Simulated scan of single mutants.
Amino acid sequence: MTTTQESPTAAGSGSSATEAFRASTLHSGAGTDPARVSAIVSKLLAGIHDVVRDESVTYPEFQAAKQWLIEVGEGGEWPLFLDVFVEHAVEEVAARTQDGTKGTILGPYYLPGQARLATPATLPQRPDEKGVPLVFTGHVRDTDGRPLAHAELDVWQADEQGYYSGFAPHLPDGNLRGLVVTDAEGRFEIHTIQPAPYQVPTDGPTGKLITAADWHPWRPAHLHLLVSAPGHRTITTQLYFKGGQWLDSDVADATKPELVLNPADQGDGTTAVDYDFVLEPA
């Protein structure tokens, strides 16, 4: 498996991520209680003030931070920055009151409205799609172990070079994305390829921060999933691969032991893995 040597531009990714965020119904919600706004923003500002005092931040450093914030906004990179560096903490808080399969971050590369596919399904791909073939199977059940017929698995992933359709101009729309529907027994079977790790775009302000802090910009290879069924809480999760590069140093800090797959070689160049999802009542 190869890894990405260069990524699509940060400007292109930022623009696509912002457009996708605005279009997605996942992010709509009721208005926020003003008291909560006051409490959260006050603590956020207090934390920033503490950093300024504790680190004796200078005026040149303060001006550099303002310029960086302006560039993040102008480049449309807020979805990228927040999803990579902040979302994992929000997800950890949400997980305190959740049962069922472990979740993790959504990330910046979700696109709604993908092709609906009955199981067994092959994710849309190019005729010459490169990569190790993967057969991903399992069941979707409720917390009492009952199968959930016609549950939906919204699946998306990077290709063998670490690129996502919709964010890399050379990929066709919908490549390696699909909405897979389970059968009457809650079972699914998805044919795809093993994805590669991907690099957070480094030519924009997010990348400048990563470089300035001497961090690496990589995420381990993973499958993204939104698993849903009527009357049940939707699970947002990612599944990783045992032994994968960057698994122990994910720049987004989103990996969890329960989410690591161990595909078996089938002897014909194909790998296969089984993984079940458990959904709690909504």
Rank of each mutant, 00 (worst) to 15 (best):
Ala168Asp: 11
Val278Phe: 09
Thr206Asp: 05
Thr58Tyr: 05
Asp33Ala: 06
Trp246Arg: 12
Glu280Tyr: 01
His49Tyr: 10
Arg177Leu: 04
Ala213Asn: 11
Leu134Gly: 07
Asp253Leu: 11
Leu153Ile: 10
Leu82Ile: 12
His232Trp: 00
Tyr275Gln: 09
Lys208Phe: 06
Lys242Gln: 14
Val84Ser: 09
Trp215Met: 13
Lys130Met: 00
Trp68Pro: 00
Ala229Lys: 00
Val57Phe: 03
Val140His: 05
Trp78Ile: 15
Thr119Val: 06
Tyr275Asn: 08
Gly103His: 03
His222Asn: 05
Gln98Val: 08
Glu61Gln: 15
Thr211Lys: 15
Ala94Asn: 13
Gly14Ala: 08
Ala10His: 04
Ser13Asn: 09
Ala46Trp: 01
Asp54Glu: 14
Glu160Leu: 05
Leu176Ala: 06
Ala229Met: 01
Leu225Glu: 05
Leu247Tyr: 10
Pro133Phe: 07
His191Phe: 12
Val51Pro: 02
Lys102Glu: 13
Pro79Phe: 07
Tyr240Cys: 05
Glu129Tyr: 04
Ala35Gln: 09
Ser28Lys: 11
Phe85Asp: 05
His27Lys: 00
Thr2Cys: 04
Ala17Asp: 02
Gly269Met: 04
Gln63Asn: 08
Asp274Ala: 15
Val93Asp: 11
Phe62Ala: 09
Thr9Met: 13
Thr137Tyr: 04
Arg141Cys: 11
Asp154Tyr: 02
Thr182Ala: 13
Trp68Leu: 14
Gln238His: 08
Pro60Arg: 02
Val93Ala: 12
Val41Glu: 06
Ala264His: 07
Ala212Asn: 05
Pro172Glu: 04
His27Gly: 04
Trp246Lys: 07
Thr255Phe: 01
Pro112Cys: 04
Arg219Gly: 01
Pro133Asp: 07
Gln194Leu: 15
Gln194Phe: 08
Ala118Tyr: 03
Leu26Lys: 08
Ala30Gln: 07
Ser56His: 09
His170Tyr: 13
Val273Gly: 10
Glu258Lys: 06
Leu82Val: 15
Ala264Val: 12
Gly244Phe: 05
Val72Thr: 10
Ala121Cys: 07
Pro217His: 10
Tyr164Trp: 15
Ile105Lys: 00
Ala196Ile: 07
Pro120Gln: 02
Gly12Trp: 06
Gln238Thr: 08
Pro79Ser: 08
Gln67Ala: 14
Leu153Arg: 01
Pro112Tyr: 01
Lys256Tyr: 03
Asp276Glu: 03
His49Ala: 14
Ser228Glu: 04
Leu45Phe: 05
Asp50His: 10
Glu87Ser: 15
Glu87Ile: 08
Thr122Asn: 08
Ala151Pro: 01
Ala118Ile: 11
Gly31Phe: 01
His150Cys: 01
His170Glu: 15
Ala89Trp: 07
Leu247Met: 09
Ser24Cys: 03
Gly162Met: 11
Ser249Gln: 15
Arg36Phe: 11
Thr3His: 06
Val72Phe: 04
Asp173Phe: 09
Gln245Met: 11
Ala158Asn: 02
Gln194Thr: 09
Ala213Glu: 13
Pro172Val: 04
Ile70Thr: 13
Val72Lys: 02
Pro79Gly: 06
Leu26Glu: 04
Ile235Pro: 03
Asp274Ser: 15
Asp183Gly: 12
Ala39Lys: 04
Leu209Ile: 12
